Every structure is written in C-alpha cells, then in structure tokens.
Simulated scan of single mutants.
Amino acid sequence: MNNKDQELQNEANNDNENKEHNIDEAAINFNADDSLSGTTHLNDEMANEEIDRFQELENQLKESNDRYLRLVAEFDNFRKRTAKEKMELTKTAGEDIVKALLDVVDDSERAAKQMESSEDLPSIKEGINLVFNKLKNTLQNRGLKAMESKDQDFDVELHEAITEIPAPTEEMKGKVIDEVSKGYFWNDKIIRHAKVVVGK
C-alpha cells in the first residue's frame, strides 16, 4: 500500500470515528432533552396539584367563613328575639297582676264608702275581711306564698333576725319566737325574707 492509499484509509477511519462520535452526542442530547422534558412535565403536574389543593383550601375557608357569619347572625337574632320576648313577658305578667287586683281595689273602695255611712262595726269588719281574703287569694293564685316561720328553726337563708330574746323554753332556743313581718315566696323564689325574733 502506498502513501496515498494509506492517507485515504486514514481519512476514511477518521470520518467513521467522527460519525460515531456525532451519533453518540446526538444520543446523549436526545436522552438529555427527553429527561428534561419529563422533569418539566412532572413539575407541571406538581404545580397543577398545588394549585388545585390551594383552590380547595380556599373554598373550604370561604365555606367555613360563611357558616360562621350565618351562625353569628342567627345568634344575634336569637338574642334580640329572646330579649324582646322577655320584656314582653315581664310587661304582660305585670299587667295580668294589676288587672287581677283591680277587683280588689273596687271592693276596697266600696268598703271605704260603707265605713263612712255605717256604724255597724261587725258588718264593717266582715267587709274588710272579705276584701283582705280576696286580695290574698288573688296573689296566691299568681304564685305568691307566705313563709311559715314561727316556731321554726332560724335559717339565715330565709330569715332576718331583728333581735334575740331569752327563749321561754329550752326547745325554743335557736328558733323563731315571733314574726315582725312575714316572708314571701314568688313561684318558689324568695322575694322577701321574714323579719323575726329569735330565742337564745
């Protein structure tokens, strides 16, 4: 083989090596591009998932806020309605008692006129007792109840001691000997403590 043939052979070998090198680079670039494309695709999916999750949380927050605002509004309406009903009930209850007492007032006026024109003391006493009993019954029918204190054990929850006196008997020590003014319950609630004299 002469020099010229050797040179041609070398050029052919170099061309083949260059082609193989170019093919390897192309393959590497292709693989790299494919890998980058896959990563980009994966990043896009993750970003979309994050956006969806954010939107879901945002919607949940809006729903929770709406529920909270509705509850606040409902509670405020309930509070106003209850206060109004309580006020109306108090007014109605007072009005009911006053109406019931008007009959007693009428009887009292008639008894007063009777006392002016009559000197029949037993008749006057009877009239006064009738008016008093009517007053008591009217109040009792609407929840008023007198407290029974005399001869009972002294109780600071029920009684107010005005004074103490020596007990007439040993058994009366620490008990109510006398009532200065009666105590009263209104529908089982104490509205006035009994003022009492206690034995010591």
Rank of each mutant, 00 (worst) to 15 (best):
M1L: 06
L61E: 11
R53F: 06
K200W: 01
K19A: 05
L130Q: 09
E157I: 01
K189A: 07
D33N: 15
I23Q: 15
L61A: 12
K80E: 12
N31R: 10
L36A: 10
L36D: 15
D34P: 00
I28E: 11
Q114R: 08
Q9N: 09
A73R: 12
K99A: 08
T40Y: 09
D76F: 01
L144T: 06
D5S: 09
S123N: 10
D34A: 15
E157M: 09
V198M: 02
E171T: 12
E58L: 01
L135H: 02
L61W: 05
K182R: 13
K62A: 07
D103T: 13
I97M: 10
Q6W: 06
R192K: 14
R110N: 13
A93Q: 13
N18M: 07
S149F: 01
E20C: 00
K62N: 09
K136W: 04
D34Y: 03
D151G: 03
L130C: 03
Q55T: 07
L71S: 07
T138H: 06
N29S: 12
V156H: 11
P168Y: 04
G143I: 05
E171Q: 13
P166K: 14
I190T: 08
N187W: 08
D15M: 07
E164T: 15
N141P: 02
A100E: 11
I190F: 02
Q114T: 03
A93T: 15
E74S: 11
G94V: 06
A167N: 05
R81Q: 14
L101N: 01
R110V: 08
K189V: 10
E74Y: 01
F54N: 10
V131Y: 00
N133D: 13
N137G: 06
D96W: 04
